[in-house]
Amino acid sequence: MHIVVCIKQVPDSSQIRVHPVTNTIMRQGVPAVVNPYDLFSLEEALRLKDRVGGRVTVLCMGPPQAEMALRKAISFGADHAILVTDRAFAGSDTLATSFALASAVRQIGRDMAVDLVFCGKQTIDGDTAQVGPGIAKRLDLQLLTYVSQIDAVDPERREIVVRRRAEGGVQVLKTRLPCLITMLEGSNELRFATQAGIFRAARYPVQRWDSKAAGIEDPSRVGLKGSPTVVRKVFAPTPNTQRADLISCESGTPEDLAATLLAKLTTRNPELAALLGRAGMQETGR
């Protein structure tokens, strides 16, 4: 079985700051990490490979430094790594990104047909959850998002059964390979790389594809040109400067503070007063 996992290198968003004057993003020195959601997909792909054999190819589109992310995937046991990198991709939105990645997956399939594509549920920087569905559509793959478990896979009969989280329950779905899966976070636990894996990753020559090598003939479909959406402005959330009404009372004991708060809540917010009354009824009712 040939499994392709799309992983993205993202800035550790907890360390990004906004320049207070210019409102631009201060990215300098912000460490890059593999998008955490993608690791659940990578692990699931490796488990499938452990189960039925085959090959795992990791694919990333990004600047040359994104090679780090791919190396990391190799250390866990991925077989191949391809970095799609080209200035032409700069400014790609999800539509253009999924176009480029779909094209690269098609190229990867020339060598050995692809049975399964994994994407992360979403990224922590773009945070759209759109690239996975986009790739599936372009490659005409069945789409299974928010998968929490893979129940069965049968490479011979080209079938897979998964559990998918829906809003109010879990769907058990059966579909045909090839398909595209995005894994729900927490659905598995990433393995610890072995020493051999670490060495292989350190020595592994990551393949770099420019847009041509990725099979993209029409450059107007990627980058800014291929992106319908345009970011008009980036801004910091307007801080609400209305400070809290700080509750204090003479004695300062927890009991008096609590009583003072409750009094304020019920006298100043009639709706709340009613609600608090009802709450009690329910409690006694139960």
Binding site: F192, A193, T194, Q195, A196, I198
Partner: peptide, 9 residues
């Protein structure tokens, strides 16, 4: 010896 599974270097 390292903390990774896989022997001596």
């Amino acid at each position: 010896h390292t903390d990774r599974e896989g022997g001596a270097i």
